[in-house]
């Protein structure tokens, strides 16, 4: 018998997800014309959620019963604030929220510059041509294809004023 019960946090999280999904599936309104036993809008979600719930539960139980040496878990010591992915996610969210304000081109130039500087030390002479060039070339290509990209609220307001 294993002396320590191991918890697979990913399986537990997915079990919670499928539970929530099944709860929401139960809230789907029933078509007023449907008869008992009909294939309603919630039938397939029950199947999908039930499948996932069963698999997550089995995974959780299997891992809990498995001896520690057979069930290596990735270390949980990872310091979240040091993870470069989280830093990039913050930069990404700022970038997306700035697309409307600064416009696609300027926001993209800012994102590529900050993103590359955040990822590693890149010399400005290498970084700038790529960070400025790529969005500008893309904008030019889109313009050629008659795809309109909004210049952003700030630039639009300024253009209206002048």
């Amino acid at each position: 018998m294993p002396s320590v019960i191991r918890i697979n946090y990913a399986a537990l999280a997915l079990l919670l997800f499928f539970t929530g999904y099944l709860y929401l599936a139960a809230q789907i309104p029933i078509d007023p014309w449907s008869l008992p036993g009909d294939f309603t809008a919630s039938a397939f979600p029950y199947f999908a959620g039930g499948l996932g719930f069963t698999a997550a539960l089995l995974q959780l139980l299997t891992d809990a019963r498995r001896p520690t040496e057979q069930n290596p878990q990735p270390p949980f010591k990872h310091r979240l604030y040091k993870d470069p992915i989280l830093g990039m996610i913050v930069v990404l969210i700022i970038y997306i929220s700035l697309i409307d304000v600064l416009g696609f081109v300027i926001a993209s130039i800012a994102f590529l510059t900050i993103g590359a500087r955040k990822t590693g030390a890149v010399a400005w002479r290498i970084l700038l041509p790529f960070a400025v060039g790529v969005p500008l070339i893309l904008w030019g290509l889109l313009d050629l294809m008659n795809i309109y990209i909004s210049p952003g609220r700030i630039l639009t307001t300024w253009l209206h004023r002048t």
């Binding site: 997800f17 499928f18 599936a25 809008a41 397939f44 979600p45 959620g49 996932g52």
Partner: peptide
């Protein structure tokens, strides 16, 4: 195996988001 089944189920769950074409009822 179970991880692949769970991921398949998530994919199936995500496919149900939006209006159900048969009944017109919005889901999730």
């Amino acid at each position: 195996y179970l991880k692949a089944v769970m991921m398949t189920a998530i994919g199936l769950c995500l496919s149900t988001v939006g209006t159900d074409l048969a009944s017109g009822i919005p889901r999730f």
